[in-house]
Nucleic acid binder design. Structure first.
Length: 886
RNA sequence: GCCCGGGUGGUGAAAUUGGUAGACGCAGGGGACUCAAAAUCCCCCACCGAAAGGUGUGCCGGUUCGAUUCCGGCCCCGGGCACCA
């Protein structure tokens, strides 16, 4: 045994053993309880960053501990290999996306192996392989057949110079990232998946089928799906288009959750793309200009919600459905054609946005609801705006004097009687647009024929293989420019020359079901086969909180679609979910001349504090140029602020990197990266090693006999000191067990540190009891530590002879708390007087409340502090404290 | 703007979620060993105060015998907002 801890040697030797034994390969074994523990698959961006290390170490700790507890544990790994960054790399370096991606995968896989993760690599999946994405295409065709996939127009960011669609990330301050051109909104056709058909079930399952999910994630999903019930109704009108036909058949539909305020309507607003707006603009140049202006600006909800609300009257009028009054139609930049009917009623008195709009354009405000009999007060809008519970309608003809609920019912009824509306449930959730005008993704299996339109590729022709020789240049649609792919196909219906669809699928499609493919990754006949029945649903899913909504919702939807196609038997894919907190680092950037942004590695720059000590800019060390400090944010390749764990692993070893990452914060907490304290984790492992060396010497002195095997403590007498040691070790073990169960691994590490403190502080009297207690304690320590730092623990377990007695640490039994070791005669209770700590009392462990109360009142601390005052009330919390109120 | 989290010593955090605030580390201070250094080991370490004692979990207020924990209102930071993944 080495006298000092040599991490490189230990890790190399142990990993060689594991590799030689292929110890992480698992098969479906119905004789054992299965456990499927999986991390969200990484995007192969180049190198691992600390977020990955954190994610996979959490996963590894869980997998290793449960294996010791007797579970058949699956921990697979794969690559979310399609996506935009590969195309960006191609633009920058001229390397084909496929090559860049596969190089990155090879490097990152090596890094994962160096971390010593218990991954079953035989199940590795890369989503850019035809054998994988074939099934994206196959399921897409099934969805088309079922009507779940359909085609409609979508609004995208259009770069007029590069003639290309931009991702939201590529639009910076309303301009294209490469060209600097002002980005326009443009409508193009694309495929959608009807996730809204599943809205009710997706919402319902959140509260009924996901008890193992964090509340915060469930809340976010519920709010995202956003069920609301209201009334959809029409404003009748006689506005006709150029051909003389009534627009919308003479009815302009709107939706509202506040039908009780319908008598307060003073205007209506339509989206710039609404037919009434288009019609009005045809004879009104000012309005046409306003509508054109609305086309600039971003497409994201955040931008739309924060932009200035603007409008312009159309000069056209519709009729109020209940009063027949004329209501003017405005065009509003805040009304979206994609939501509902692209039109809204305007009730300035009872809607904050309408209020602001009415104030700005001097529109009438008509109050129709009172809250607690209070009159409307412009200055105190927020005090009562929207308080539906306490509201009563006024100024509303026959609807006056009603509660919110009754008024909504009555209005709905009245509208229904006139054939102009009805109650309706709506969702915030929108259908999932899956078409992308990009190269590096799954080709959408469609052929366009002049005669037969969009024709699905026959199943036998799948996969539609993505050509590997395409290097995107930033303009146009790359596959559209690739003649070999785009042209030269025939229509499956008529056999005449046709064109292949050149859009690819959103990469969220790839990540919506890969975890089912892991169950049988090599199957060429089926998307998922019997393996999924054994392993699914996944028992524990682990990934960043940034995926709380989109990825997790899409995966849930996709699973339900697969269930409805009889491919799997489950309703929900993930039984338990752990959302790991983000690993953050500082962000420094500079805008380029064309609008593009360059990011700088935090150690390349020095902060420049302003007069108040606040940092907003920094200086580049290399050339002294000024860059801006953008605060702290997620580690990512695109922000150039990801910390590569490689240096850490080389200097201290994988065990230290893993241990530190686990120790420094609880898994769910956000972590601002700082490795100043890594040294402490390394020091701890050295202490563990050194203790092993000492113990090994004692064992050798005792003739090599080690060992506390199973039942090895029977008949051994423990002295007072040994008993105290065992009390400490088993108390901590109990806590460690609990922390493992709730996956709070930072305190698991604390617990193991407490164990080594106790063992090092123990003064052995050389008795058999003392020696046995130490060996038992160290054996418990090694097993508690092993899931976090498997290499060193595995090695020491072996060297010290524990393996010979209790088996290989991979499968050694998890230590059990000995209730006998926890028995105490006396316990200390804190003594409070009027809630303030004034001392403590010692009472027998089994003391009754009355005895405790008597002891407390008789104690010196009480007598001295109470100063003769009589106790009015005594609160006894067993095992904790006594509070005397005087 | 909307939805969801978070804020505890110089610092990362703990407190089994209404019951001893700061466990376990890092940094720092002091000491031992050493010719010296490194490594290792031991002690101290929330703030104010000489002490008694008082004050402290982002800020303001409330409920309670007792609040980091529950309630109301604010401030700051992070995540998401549908084409980054």
């Amino acid at each position: 045994m080495q006298d000092t801890y040599q991490h490189t040697e230990v890790e190399r030797a142990v990993q060689a053993l594991w590799t030689a034994g292929d110890v992480y390969r698992v098969t479906e074994d119905t004789s054992k309880k299965k456990f499927y523990a999986c991390s969200m698959l990484p995007y192969p961006s180049g190198k691992l960053h600390m977020g990955h290390v954190r994610n996979y170490t959490i996963n590894d700790m869980l997998a290793r501990q449960l294996r010791m507890k007797g579970y058949n544990v699956l921990m697979p790994m794969g690559w979310d290999a399609f996506g935009l960054p590969a195309e960006n790399a191609a633009l920058k370096n001229g390397v084909p996306p496929a090559q860049w991606t596969f190089d990155n995968i090879a490097y990152m896989k090596k890094q994962m192996q160096a971390m010593g993760l218990a991954i079953d690599w035989s199940r590795e999946v890369a989503t850019c392989e035809p054998s994988y994405y074939k099934w994206n295409q196959w399921l897409f065709l099934k969805m088309l057949e079922k009507g779940i996939a359909y085609r409609k127009t979508q609004v995208v960011n259009w770069d007029p110079v590069d003639m290309t669609v931009l991702a939201n990330e590529q639009v910076i301050d309303g301009k294209g990232w490469r060209t600097g051109a002002v980005v326009e909104k443009r409508e193009i056709p694309g495929y959608y998946l009807k996730i809204t058909d599943y809205a009710e079930e997706l919402l319902d399952s959140v509260s009924h089928q996901l008890p193992g999910w964090p509340e915060r994630v469930k809340l976010m999903q519920e709010n995202w799906i956003g069920k609301s019930t209201g009334v959809r109704f029409a404003f009748p009108h006689d506005i006709s288009d150029a051909s003389g036909a009534l627009i919308g058949g003479g009815k302009m539909y709107v939706f509202t959750t506040r039908a009780d305020t319908i008598m307060g309507v003073t205007f209506c607003a339509v989206a710039p793309e609404h037919p009434i707006a288009t019609h009005a603009a045809s004879t009104n140049p000012a309005l046409a200009a306003f509508i054109a202006e609305c086309k600039s600006g971003g497409t994201t909800e955040a931008e739309l919600a924060t932009q200035e609300k603007k409008g312009m009257p159309t000069g056209l009028f519709v009729r109020h459905p209940l009063t027949d009054d004329e209501v003017e139609v405005w065009v509003g930049n805040y009304v979206l054609m994609g939501y509902g009917d692209g039109a809204v009623m305007g009730v300035p008195a009872h809607d904050e946005r309408d209020f602001a709009f009415a104030k700005k354009y001097d529109l009438p405000i008509r109050q129709v609801v009172l809250v607690d009999g209070e009159h409307y007060d412009y200055q105190h809008w927020h005090d009562w705006y929207g308080d539906k519970q306490r509201s009563v309608t006024v100024n509303s003809d026959s609807f006056s004097g009603m509660s919110h609920k009754d008024a909504v019912e009555a209005v709905a009824h009245a509208l229904q009687a006139k054939g102009l509306g009805d109650k309706k449930t709506t969702w915030r959730l929108r259908d999932w647009g899956v078409s992308r005008q990009r190269y590096w993704g799954t080709p959408i299996p469609i052929i366009h024929c002049d005669e037969h339109g969009a024709v699905p590729v026959p199943e036998k022709d799948l996969p539609v293989v993505l050509p590997q020789d395409c290097i995107p240049d930033g303009s146009g649609n790359p596959l559209h420019k690739h003649e070999g792919f785009h042209a030269g196909v025939v229509c499956p219906v008529c056999g005449k020359a046709a064109r292949r669809e050149t859009d690819t699928m959103d990469t969220f499609v790839d990540s919506s079901w890969y975890f089912m493919r892991y169950c049988d990754p090599k199957n060429t006949d089926k998307m998922v086969a019997e393996g999924a029945d054994y392993w699914m649903p996944m028992d524990q899913y682990i990934g960043g909180i940034e995926h709380a909504i989109l990825h997790l919702l899409y995966a849930r939807f996709w699973t339900k679609v697969m269930r409805d196609l009889d491919l799997v038997k489950i309703d929900e894919p993930f039984t338990k979910l752990l959302t790991q907190g983000m690993v953050l680092n500082h962000i420094y950037s500079r805008k380029g001349e064309t609008g593009g942004v360059e990011y700088f590695w935090p150690s390349e720059v020095e902060d420049i504090p302003d007069a108040n000590g606040k940092v907003t800019t920094a200086r580049r060390k290399s050339d002294g140029s000024i860059v801006s400090y953008d605060g702290i944010g997620t580690m990512s390749k695109s922000k150039n602020n990801g910390v590569d764990p490689q240096d850490l692993i080389e200097k201290y070893g994988a065990d230290t990197a893993r241990l530190y990452t686990m120790f420094t914060a609880p898994p769910e907490a956000t972590l601002e990266w700082n490795d100043a304290a890594v040294e402490g984790s390394y020091r701890f492992l050295k202490r563990v090693w050194n203790f092993g060396v000492k113990l090994n010497a004692i064992n050798s002195g005792a003739g090599g006999a080690n060992a506390v095997g199973a039942g090895g403590l029977k008949g051994i007498e423990f002295g007072k000191e040994a008993k105290a040691l065992r009390l400490e070790i088993h108390t901590v073990l109990k806590q460690v067990d609990y922390d493992y169960q709730r996956m709070q691994y930072n305190t698991v590490v604390s617990g193991v540190m407490k164990m080594i403190n106790a063992l090092e502080g123990f003064k052995s009297d050389g008795s058999a009891g003392a020696q046995a207690a130490v060996r038992e304690g160290f054996g418990i320590l090694l097993r508690c530590l092993y899931p976090a730092t498997p290499h060193i623990a595995y090695r020491l377990w072996d060297i010290l002879g524990y393996a010979a007695a209790q088996g290989d640490l991979l499968n050694a039994p998890w230590p059990e708390v000995d209730p006998g070791a926890l028995v105490q005669d006396e316990v200390e209770l804190m003594l409070q007087i009027n809630g303030k700590l004034r001392g403590s009392i010692l009472v027998p462990a089994a003391a009754s409340k009355e005895e405790i109360e008597r002891t407390a009142l008789a104690s010196d601390a009480f007598v001295k502090q109470a100063d003769g005052a009589a106790a009015k009330k005594v609160v006894v919390v067993p095992g904790r404290l006594v509070n005397v109120v005087v």
